[in-house]
Design a protein around this nucleic acid. Structure first.
Lengths: 259, 259
DNA sequence: GTCTTAAGGTACGTTTTCGGACGTTCTAGA
DNA sequence: TCTAGAACGTCCGAAAACGTACCTTAAGAC
């Protein structure tokens, strides 16, 4: 995704922060605290107040909803394409419905929720990018809802792997079958069978607690249509080009930045 | 449904509008166009621009996501507890990912998307209430995603009926089994079996194209935990009391707010 | 090197839902 | 009043996923 680096934004890899003009970044920067994200770190506990939000630079975080009787299920994924702590933008006493935790370690910029709220008030581009990301998450959540209701495990797993792979550097996904089964809301044994099928086709390679994507395009071919829906809509909402390997050079939507 | 809108009867039934102070309402009112919502009316087409948003006064609208290969699935429900057209608040060229349509006829106030955007800029309470509702939809979407992945049809249908019932006047839900099956993403035959079981237990009564809730509390008892999660979180986000049967007083037909 | 344990492969019967079909009943319109 | 079609109840075999269990294997601790 070629974004021309300027003197101000070169240090950021987060896609929301990279989109900010120099003056906004200057206002925001003093409040950003660089932090390291470690595996299993909980960014927000479910049904707890949100004091700080996180703009990811690398690594991957998952949001899970609780069913009470049947464990947690993944409802959203955030990498450096967004930030964790959407409610900070949406209400004055923000609290997280979901549990947000780190699965793939990395770095982030931490920011007090109240500061983000104030800053979004003052900085139009920041607000625009963040609210667009809210819309992305709305879309992602609901597509996952439809996907969970309609599509079968092989397609869902493939979609999930591609989406995760898209949001990180490299092809290694450090996650166990146990973890995948929890995220998709199925049995571990089911993941085992499907993952072996994908491996037999040469699309992934499994080792213990790690899955390596060998053929991203092939894997995308196995994924359900939801992958394409999510990526296309995400690109349209954010005003960027889709990630898909075979994507045509999409004629930019309104607020396409120069490149 | 004879509602007589006298010139003085300007009080709103929409919960977002009811929460506005007099001055904000006065600013907003000239832009509100009262409209009638008829069955099957499409408020927003999927993947199309949003020109107008709708604050429902009565009736019920559903949002559906498209799976491409397996039809539409319900991902959200809006009655007079909210408004249809969230993206109007989130981006300058709003477009709807979902198809939004009317299932239960009623009335609404129509508003140009651009006007809502401008008004939300100027009117703090309006913005607050609407953004809170965005958070409610985020929460609702993701709980439905988890529910679709984990819970079985009987519980999901019960939840769905109670949630719909909560958002309208009375106990009659004008919808066919065919429709219900599409919303929940299952076969019609499955709905038939489960609905008959609920009827045998005296919780609902079915006629052609209509389901009457006979025992709301009993039906809630059959619903999965997601009902409680959604209602509790909705109340917390909006700052109102939960709708549940055992809730404290001030809950009659929906949540009454005084200003 | 050994030991411990988490991670993963596989198998069993069972339950749920599927896809499809057919017949019945009610309702709207000719 | 009659009729076509929508709405619904029911049934079938098939497929998917379930819950559970047992065993093997690899990685890390000592």
């Amino acid at each position: 995704m070629p974004v021309v680096p300027t003197a101000e934004n070169t240090s950021f890899r987060n896609e929301l922060l990279r989109a900010l003009p120099a003056d906004e970044l200057q206002r925001l920067r003093p409040h950003l605290v660089p932090v390291t994200l470690v595996v299993s770190q909980v960014l927000h506990e479910a049904e707890a107040a949100i004091d700080e939000v996180f703009f990811l630079e690398s690594g991957l975080a998952f949001l899970t909803a609780d069913t009470r009787d049947h464990g947690l299920v993944e409802v959203g994924t955030t990498g450096r394409d967004g930030f964790v702590g959407l409610p900070a933008l949406l209400s004055p006493e923000p609290f997280s419905v979901h549990r947000a935790f780190v699965q793939i370690p990395g770095r982030a910029h931490r920011l007090r929720a109240a500061v983000l709220r104030d800053m979004a008030e003052a900085l139009p581009t920041l607000r625009d990018r963040c609210l667009r990301y809210v819309q992305v998450m709305l879309m992602q959540n609901s597509q996952i809802a439809a996907c969970n209701a309609r599509h079968e495990l092989p397609e869902r797993l493939a979609r999930w792997l591609v989406m995760s792979r898209d949001r990180i550097d490299g092809d290694d996904l450090p996650m166990t079958q146990e973890f995948l089964s929890a995220m998709l809301g199925v049995r571990r044994a089911g993941i085992s069978v499907v993952a072996n099928a994908l491996q037999a086709q040469g699309l992934i390679r499994q080792s213990r607690g790690r899955i390596t994507v060998l053929d991203r395009a092939g894997l995308e071919g196995k994924a359900c249509t939801c992958y394409g829906m999510i990526e296309r809509n995400r690109a349209r909402i954010m005003g960027t080009s889709p990630r898909a390997a075979d994507a045509p050079p999409d004629v930019g939507q309104g607020t396409r930045r120069s490149q």
